[in-house]
Amino acid sequence: MRSCSLRIFLALLAPTLAWAAPNPRLALPEFAALAQKATESVTITLDAALLAIAGRFLDGNDPQDAAAKEVLKGLQGIYVRSYTFDKDSAYQQADIDAVRNQLSAPGWSRLVETRSRKSQANIDIYIMVTNDQATGLALIASEPRQFTIVNIVGAIDLDKLHKLEGQFGVPKLDIDLPKTASPNTKK
């Protein structure tokens, strides 16, 4: 009787705990109005199922595909919103702030903050670490004629992102990344 009550209590508690757990997936708006104004827009929504399908079509013999395949391991979603405009200040700061506010939630921490006066590019990289494992990454880049939001959900191996060097034009970042355990590497 007692164990039955405990089970019922745990069953009722489970959804509450799930809700309370930090969610690495950001609620990205559709930005439909901005997409209409933009000269170029990229809207990518790849959930776990689509990533699995994409993985089947990546050629392991092609260096670019092989690198992408390595990065995809353990990921549960990639979400990108990027808009390019033909004039300055075509978007409101409030558009970005709606997303940035979500990153003040517990679990998220800012990894990199860059402000360039020369290119007027502001780029922030946030990371969510759960049990010493990077489970979410968010990148917000705002430039006068472009803004980009990238949200990667899942077991992100930052070393693998490093290894994208030369594949997608990614240079090796000489920054101290937090030590995160890769799902494929033994501790």
């Binding site: 990229v42 860059t114 990148l139 880049a141 980009t148 990238v150 997608f168 034009g169 240079p171």
Partner: peptide, 8 residues
């Protein structure tokens, strides 16, 4: 796109 921004 991600790598482009990391490049920046």
């Amino acid at each position: 796109v991600t790598s482009q921004k990391l490049n920046l």
